[in-house]
Simulated scan of single mutants.
Amino acid sequence: MEQQPTVGKIGFRYGLILSLISIAYFIILNVVGLIANNAFGWLGYIFTIILIVMAHKAFKDQGDGFMSYGQGLGIGTLLSVVSGVISSVFTLIYIKFIDDSMLQAIRDKTIEQLESQGMSDSEIETALEFSSAFTSPTAIAIFGILGALIGGFILSLIISAITKNNNPELEA
Rank of each mutant, 00 (worst) to 15 (best):
M67I: 03
G11I: 05
G84H: 01
L114T: 08
L34S: 11
I145H: 02
K96D: 13
A105I: 10
G70L: 10
G70D: 10
E115Y: 11
T48S: 12
I10R: 11
F12H: 14
N38P: 09
Y25E: 09
H56R: 01
G72K: 00
I27V: 15
S22L: 10
G44Y: 07
Q117R: 15
I111K: 03
M54V: 09
V81T: 04
S116L: 14
M54S: 08
P137Q: 08
S132V: 04
Q62G: 11
L79K: 00
V89D: 01
L114P: 07
F97I: 04
I142M: 06
Q3S: 14
T48C: 13
L114F: 11
Q71I: 01
I111L: 08
D64P: 07
G41C: 07
A105W: 13
Y25T: 03
Q62P: 07
Q117H: 12
S68K: 11
F47A: 14
K9I: 11
E112K: 09
G15K: 03
K60Q: 04
G65H: 03
T110V: 11
Y14T: 00
F47K: 04
I75Y: 03
Q104T: 15
L128E: 07
W42Q: 11
G76Q: 00
I27A: 14
F134W: 05
L146G: 13
S87R: 05
D99N: 09
G44K: 02
D61G: 07
D64F: 08
S22A: 15
T138D: 11
I35V: 10
Q71V: 00
M67K: 02
E112F: 14
E129Q: 14
M67S: 06
V82R: 00
F66E: 03
F97G: 04
R107W: 14
E112G: 10
F47I: 08
F40C: 06
G65E: 03
V53P: 01
F97P: 08
A58G: 06
I106M: 13
I46P: 05
G72D: 02
A127C: 12
F90L: 01
L128Q: 08
I142P: 00
T135S: 13
V89G: 06
A36E: 08
A39T: 09
S131P: 04
V32H: 13
I75V: 09
S122A: 15
S68L: 10
Q71W: 02
I98D: 11
T91R: 12
Y94W: 08
D61C: 09
F40N: 04
F40H: 03
D100N: 15
I10S: 11
G63K: 01
L114W: 10
M102Q: 15
I142Q: 00
I35D: 13
D121V: 07
A55F: 05
L18E: 10
G72P: 06
Y25R: 06
S19L: 06
